[in-house]
Write a protein that binds this DNA or RNA. Structure first.
Length: 1092
RNA sequence: GCCGAAGUGGUGAAAUUGGUAAACACGCACGACUCAAAAUCGUGUGCCCAAAAGCUUGAGGGUUCGAGUCCCUCCUUCGGCACCA
């Protein structure tokens, strides 16, 4: 008997497959296509760890299954090789990044090849290959021509360590994602792509992506962040500022003055708001510290420091131009200008981290400037605060403190007026229908001495005619409680009013919560009464921490009243204090122990106490209205305090008020334009030439690619320019337009550029005429299945969708969306539960696993670990299970006798095997389709375990079982297949037990090299539905829903028969005995439930 | 804080979508083979218990003949976003 030698087998077949070009993908074919894509890796120096191949194994399984099902499969691999690590390594070690890349790629490739993937390496691509990035540059030029690429001087995120600008997408918690340094804001000339032009389409088309995980779509939605609202202009009321608009004193303005006057006077502030309906409640404006008006005011005000040119002469228009602003005119009088300046500078210096840490609102008023609320002409103050972002909306907001959390917080801090203009929609319901419920919860109900206290409560409530709800009376028959039960029964009111009191045992909250939801009540405040006579303080503590985990009620308990006496043996005043701090509740220590006497006479002190309690509840109801009238409400509703718009609902009012003040309804996106340049060496040069005469000139297409020159130094220049800027012979060039001296753009593209379209290049990797041949693109696109990490949910997948849509618009591709189906792969964590990383020293190299256990075992294990999309910790012990399974399969084919049914030995075949096999075909086929690889494997294990029990097995089933297993464990199955001998002649396809249904359509099997036989040229088995129907089944017999017995019955048993069988069971009789059967529930093929 | 996903044995996890909870695997225990060990095979393995009965899917409640699955109120963990007006 041969031993399973994974090493030998795997090497052998990897060689054979390569030699026979088994995985080479042909373009011209009449087969249906299937394009399966992995997110291509960045070839880092660390090599692959066992987590990387998880996704690749899955795509490989799919690819192999699709091959077997007769598809023409494209399953390529390539390298996303531009990027910072290679460059940083180059700086350190003075090696060209390309060299390091090549080395890393070789490592990656050998690691991948050991695992036995179906990649067609003839289609390998590399983003750093000039023949590849030629087309990245080409696409950039097309965008430039369409006006989608522009230069901008906006401040960018600057990483001082990497000496480069970063997109927002490259930040992690305000730090550089690569090196973890604090990010500064630095203005710099950048190339920016107008991705925002595509925001709406990218959002809308998410709906088309039926086979994308909802979570990813949701994340993209949030990332795009569409919000609809209005732009509204607030006039500025500032005498001196306004006079700028109208020339003073009617002085005739010479042409010169007008020309040289560099200032554009800002006479109004435009804000963006999603809630124009709250305009009447806007009691101040806020500008972002970076707002242009702020900048302007600061520079204006600076002039004030310079002694004024003063007097009448100042109006002279003999100015030399610059003079117009040179302190001759008294302009803006910001009385707290120093303060403002200081604040603006402070915020500028704040790092992102600091801004994040300090959530408290800060800001400063712009004294001397007022704005006019265009709705009611009210004069309102203007503030500068960093809670307003410069690059969202207009960088300025109208603040409505009554209806916005942030504005509310700020207004409270600054003491600004808060004006309510929206009443909640259910305002009326709140006051009329939806009742407030007052709650008194009593702890220690039913204790001996406490009855006196409860009697007082009863008396008090009766006298005051207060309705009571107390449904949770202790469930005991003790006569002691009879009086209470009667009382509550009598007083329970179906309708509740503001006076109603819920009085219950302190353990009642479960009921209470239910009651509140059922009756649509609102719980305002609860009072907790805890007589402590016999309750040790620890008991009370316990109660709050363990039993009483109803956090909502807990939060509402504002007052805890503990009735106790100072002569109590069990607790001290210190205990009270401690407990009160813990619960942040107020205690009333009641001194008179007499409350708890059995005494029937009223105790005036108790009455007083109760009145206090109820009064405080009533005052709460009062304050409830106050809360609604003057405090925060952020929902929509009915307008109040809004003059002619009063009574209108928010939705209507949004439009009406916007129209009324001459505003404009607009849409805003969080998505920002894509900062597309990096001041680094190792990226695609941006194909642009700067000419003094002609300005920005694109490199002519025929000159592409603009190749990356070799440099001696990879260090950033420190000025923020790319190292390319130092290579004069590269930078200096001729202007393609005028032929004059010109300079090349020295910025390079970000890593995202090459990865935004690589999937298209696999289709036609060698084409030097076009990015991709149109016909081939039409055949292969879109990608049918894309598998990769969820970490790319927003960046890569947004960029690629954008890029693709652009290519669609210019006619390069045929479909609007690049990826039809997307699936996330869950991470594999290290055995210690952390991420695998050199830093932790917990990395497991797949090479070691392949050497020791075999590629097949690793493949099976990684797919068996758990649900594919979930992250799991690696466990080498678990791997042993996969290995044992393969060994069992091996032994099966070595030890068992395989018989052909045609040989007249059908009878020798165990009858369990054929139906189980067909079930296995079904399960494996379906589970691969739905990415449930773990259960597919488990089913195959069940099948193998069953086979192990028998000595004689049906040959055709066993052969086809190998095909099922082949995508998971290609090497061992290929070997066993070969051992069984050439197939076609021996077993007529579709033959064998119960396989009448598999009529071969002959696809695929014969299309290759005739001498080369491979299991992967066979056909995926089909199951026969008749074979999986059970004739008998185990019927579950339940009594009142509980399983009492199981009986073997035939599959098509009738209800009557089933009933008979069930009642025949002794076990069932035991439960049914003598009792009336009220109802019988019969579920065909499953169970029978007797209800008694 | 907001959005999303998820909580099931000692562990990784299954559960036909409302119908036998814990398949499959790891681990563990016992047994067989062996001088012995490893490997392999067999048996057992949710909790409580001698057994019968009972209990059990983060907590509590609800709907239902029947709930891991649906509804309500919470808790916890992990991802994403985070002053987005």
């Amino acid at each position: 008997m041969k031993k399973y030698n994974h090493e030998k087998i795997e090497k052998k077949w990897q060689k054979e497959w390569k030699k026979n070009k088994l995985y080479q993908t042909k373009n011209e074919t009449d087969k249906p296509k299937y394009y399966i894509l992995d997110m291509f890796p960045y070839p880092s120096g660390a090599g692959l760890h066992v987590g990387h191949p998880k996704g690749y194994i899955a795509t490989d399984i799919l690819a192999r299954q699709k091959m077997l099902q007769g598809y023409n499969v494209l399953h390529p691999m390539g390298w996303d090789a531009f990027g910072l690590p290679a460059e940083n390594f180059a700086i350190k070690n003075k090696v060209h990044p390309r060299e390091m890349n090549e080395k890393n790629i070789a490592t990656f490739k050998s690691q991948l090849e050991k695992i036995g993937f179906t990649y067609d390496w003839d289609r390998e691509i590399n983003t750093t290959d000039p023949e590849y990035y030629k087309w990245t540059q080409w696409t950039f030029l097309q965008m430039f021509k369409k006006g989608l690429a522009y230069e901008s001087y906006e401040p960018i995120n600057w990483c001082p360590k990497c000496q480069t600008g970063l997109a927002n997408e490259d930040l992690e918690n305000g730090k550089c994602e690569r090196c973890d340094s604090e990010i500064e804001q630095k203005p710099m000339r950048q190339w920016v792509l107008k991705i925002t032009d595509y925001a709406e389409r990218m959002l809308k088309d998410l709906d088309k992506l039926q086979n994308w995980p909802e979570s990813i779509k949701e994340m993209q939605k949030n990332w795009i962040g569409k919000s609809e609202g209005a732009k509204i202009k607030f006039p500025i009321k500032e005498e001196k500022l306004r006079t700028e608009v109208v020339p003073r004193g009617g002085v005739k303005r010479s042409k010169t003055t007008e020309e040289v006057r560099p200032r554009e006077v800002i006479s109004e502030i435009e804000v963006f708001t999603t809630r124009p309906d709250t305009l009447f409640g806007a009691t101040y404006l806020v500008l972002a510290p970076e707002h242009e008006l702020v900048e302007k005011i600061l520079s204006e005000a600076r002039e004030e420091v310079v002694p004024r040119g003063g007097g009448i002469g100042s109006e002279a228009d003999n100015s030399d131009g610059r003079g117009a602003t040179s302190g001759s005119v008294e302009r803006i009088n910001i009385s707290n200008y120093k303060e403002v300046k200081k604040y603006v500078e402070q915020t500028k210096n704040k790092t992102e981290m600091e801004r994040m840490e300090n959530k408290e609102k800060t800001g400063v008023e712009l004294k001397g400037v007022k704005a006019i609320n265009p709705a009611n002409q009210e004069e309102i103050p203007v503030y500068i605060a960093d809670y307003v972002l410069a690059d969202y909306g207009t960088g300025a907001i109208m603040a409505v403190p009554a209806h916005d959390e942030r504005d509310f917080e700020f207004a409270q801090k600054m003491g600004i007026k808060i004006k309510q203009v929206i009443a909640p929609d259910d305002y009326n319901q709140e006051t009329n229908d939806r009742k407030q419920l007052n709650v008194i919860l009593m702890h220690g109900w039913g204790g001996h001495g406490k009855m006196g206290w409860f009697k007082e409560v009863k008396k008090f409530l009766t006298n005051k005619n207060i309705d009571v709800i107390a449904p949770d009376f202790p469930n005991t028959d003790s006569p002691k409680y009879q009086e209470w039960r009667d009382f509550f029964k009598k007083n329970i009111q179906p309708k509740i009013n503001d006076q109603t009191v819920f009085i219950g045992h302190s353990l009642a909250p479960s009921f209470l919560m239910h009651y509140i939801t059922e009756e649509n009540l609102q719980l305002q405040q609860a009072i907790f009464v805890a007589p402590v006579l016999h309750n040790r303080i620890s008991e009370l503590n316990n109660f709050f921490e363990k039993d009483f985990n109803w956090s909502k009620i807990k939060k509402l308990i504002k007052k805890v009243i503990v009735l106790g006496s100072d002569d109590d043996l069990y607790i001290t005043l210190n205990d009270f204090q401690e407990l009160s701090e813990k619960l942040s509740a107020k205690f009333i220590l009641h001194k008179n122990r007499g409350h708890f006497s059995q005494n029937e006479n009223s105790n005036p002190e108790i009455i007083k106490l109760l009145e206090e309690i109820l009064d405080s509840q009533n005052s709460n109801i009062q304050s409830k209205f106050k809360i609604q009238n003057s405090k925060l409400y952020t929902g929509v509703g009915i307008l109040i305090n809004s003059e002619q718009f009063d009574g209108m609902n928010s939705e209507e009012a949004k439009k009406a008020i916007t129209k009324f003040v001459g505003g404009e309804m607009t849409v805003n996106y969080k998505l920002k334009d894509w900062v597309f340049s990096r001041q680094r060496y190792w990226g695609e040069p941006i194909p642009i030439i700067h000419c003094d005469k002609c300005g920005v000139v694109p490199v002519p297409e025929e000159e592409l690619p603009v190749k990356l020159p070799d440099v001696e130094n990879y260090e950033p220049t420190g000025t923020g320019e790319s190292p390319l800027a130092n290579i004069d012979e590269w930078v200096n060039t001729k202007c393609p337009k005028c032929g004059g001296e010109a300079k090349r753009e020295t910025n390079t593209m970000p890593q995202w550029a090459g990865s935004s379209w690589y999937y298209l290049r696999y289709i036609d990797p060698k084409n030097n005429k076009a990015l991709v041949d149109k016909k081939k693109e039409k055949y292969w696109s879109p990608v049918d299945f894309y598998i990769g990490g969820a970490e790319h949910a927003t960046r890569h997948l947004i960029y690629a969708r954008f890029w693709h849509k652009f290519l669609f618009d210019i006619g390069v591709v045929n479909y609007e969306e690049p990826f039809t189906r997307l699936q996330n792969v869950g991470l594999i964590m290290a055995e210690d539960g952390r991420k695998m990383s050199k830093r932790w020293g917990n990395v497991i190299n797949p090479d070691d696993i392949v050497d020791e256990f075999g590629a097949d075992a690793m493949r099976v294990y990684e797919m068996f670990m758990g649900p594919f999309a979930q992250s799991v910790a690696w466990n080498t012990k678990g791997l042993i299970g996969a290995r044992r399974f393969l060994e069992k399969v091996w032994r099966l084919f070595q030890e068992k006798e395989l018989v052909e049914c045609g040989g007249g030995r059908c009878g020798d075949v165990p009858k369990e095997i054929p139906p189980l096999f067909h079930k296995t075909i079904k399960k494996v086929t379906e589970d691969i389709e739905s990415m449930n690889f773990n259960t597919a494997i488990s089913q195959m294990m069940i099948f193998v375990n069953e086979c192990m029990k028998h000595d004689i097995l049906p040959k055709s089933a066993m052969e086809r079982f190998l095909i099922l297993l082949a995508p998971f464990a290609p090497h061992i199955t290929e070997e066993l297949w070969a051992e069984l001998g050439a197939r076609e002649e021996v077993v007529p396809r579709g033959g064998g037990i119960g396989s009448e249904a598999d009529n071969s359509d002959g696809r695929g099997a014969t299309s290759r090299n005739a001498e080369f036989s491979s299991i992967f040229l066979e056909e995926w088995p089909k199951y026969n539905p008749d074979m999986i129907k059970d004739e008998m089944f185990e019927m579950v017999v339940q009594v009142n829903g509980k399983v009492r017995d199981k009986v073997q019955v035939s599959a098509d048993i009738s209800e009557e028969e089933a009933n008979e069988k069930a009642l025949a069971s002794e076990k069932v009789q035991k439960y049914v005995d003598g009792k009336e059967i009220k109802k019988v529930i019969f579920i065909k093929g499953r169970l029978l439930n007797l209800v008694i």
